[in-house]
Design a protein around this nucleic acid. Structure first.
Lengths: 128, 128
DNA sequence: CGGAATCCCCAGTGATACTG
DNA sequence: CAGTATCACTGGGGATTCCG
């Protein structure tokens, strides 16, 4: 696997000597990750959960624009990908708490970078 | 505008004292940015252009999975958002060169962070 | 409270063909 | 070479309803 496509890491190190076997780009980890957390809500959810663990309806309220369906779906995806931990607390009215896993927290950092950029250049963007 | 929602910057500074006026989250710059460059190709394009300026077909070949339609569309979007500069060179067969603007380069950094993360944890992810 | 199930729509995306 | 134009599809995503 040393000769296939494991040398993609330097994607951003502006290193494109040759055409780059494109089948590799398709399987490129970057593309992969974007396909997983690049949707409308995932990153936002990670950011919110990065603050503190939240319960279901708490998240629903915190993000507001999101539908129950999408909230659940996104949470499940993130959970499947090992980014979010779902914990059912055996209280009388069942309460569920969602929190970031270590992996989730590690993702929080780069995402934060992006979020910071977003906040910083929010104005410079397109007026319309 | 000092009292409305310009104080969102600390999204990731785990600062959620109160419910957070959610209408603000909807208009949250982070969400905005994700809506713009969070699609399937934008970030990838930024990464590639971050290496060097590319011509149209060069990009088409570099990414491969992308269709002409999407390549053009995405480039136009990025151009509109001021992230990419389109330069027509008056050569006999017309050649067009795409490059990142300063704003585009500034975005490249946080994206790189994400890409690095992607490469790093590509394995830890969900196999299926 | 914390979901699952269902229905439905349309924006994002691809394939193909054509053009200056 | 660097696109534009059409058509068609899929699945992302919302609204609503039902369940333990």
């Amino acid at each position: 696997m040393s000769g296939t496509n494991t040398s993609v890491p330097s994607v951003l190190a502006h290193e494109l000597p040759r055409p780059v076997p494109l089948d590799e780009l398709a399987a490129c980890p970057v593309t992969e990750v974007f396909r997983r957390v690049g949707d409308k809500w995932s990153m936002l959810l990670v950011i919110v959960l990065g603050g503190r663990p939240h319960r279901y309806n708490e998240l629903h309220r915190a993000i507001e624009g999101i539908s129950q369906r999408m909230l659940t779906r996104t949470l499940r995806n993130l959970e499947t990908d090992g980014l979010v931990k779902r914990e059912v607390l055996p209280t009388v009215p069942p309460s569920v708490e969602y929190s970031l896993t270590p992996l989730g927290f590690s993702l929080l950092e780069p995402i934060s970078g992006l979020a910071d950029w977003a906040v910083l250049h929010a104005g410079h963007f397109r007026p319309a």
